[in-house]
Every structure is written in C-alpha cells, then in structure tokens.
C-alpha cells in the first residue's frame, strides 16, 4: 500500500537521508539520524501529514516502521 511510501518519504525528509535506507522493518536504532530530536520531528510530521494527534505516550512508542504503520492503520481506518 502507498502509506508505507509516504512514511518512508517523511522519514527521509525528516532525517535528511535517502529513502532506500528505510525498509518495512526499520527501527530507530537502525538509523543514526533517527535521534531524539529527529524522532519528535517525525512524530510532528506524521501528525501534519495524516491528520492524527499523538499523545506523549504514543510518541515514545512509535519507534519503528511497523509500529508507525500499525498505529496509522488503526487511526486512519474509515469508521
């Protein structure tokens, strides 16, 4: 699905890296640019792009591509 592509684009733009460094299983510890500031930026990017609102606890949990996709799938599912 194309959600993963958007997430990869966001991560590449946020961390200033090539999107081919990001795969379906990538987690925070795989990418040195994914530091604490980068993480907050990524969370804000997800909010702006997908129109979701994260609380502090969710922000601390969404530290991998699978976790992010799983969250988005639940949050963006049509009612």
């Amino acid at each position: 699905m194309h959600q993963i592509e958007t997430v990869k684009d966001l991560m590449a733009a946020t961390f200033g890296i090539e999107s081919d460094r990001i795969g379906a299983q990538t987690a925070q510890f795989d990418i040195v640019e994914w530091d604490s500031v980068g993480h907050l930026n990524l969370m804000l990017s997800l909010e702006q792009t997908f129109g979701v609102t994260l609380d502090v606890e969710q922000m601390t949990q969404l530290t991998s591509v699978p976790a992010i996709l799983q969250y988005l799938e639940a949050a963006c599912r049509p009612q």
């Binding site: 733009a13 946020t14 930026n41 990017s45 702006q48 792009t49």
Partner: peptide, 9 residues
Amino acid sequence: TALGPLEIN
C-alpha cells in the same frame, strides 16, 4: 500558513 515537512522540503 503552517507548512508540512514534505512541503517544506
């Protein structure tokens, strides 16, 4: 006008 990260890029 708050721009998103992809738009900024």
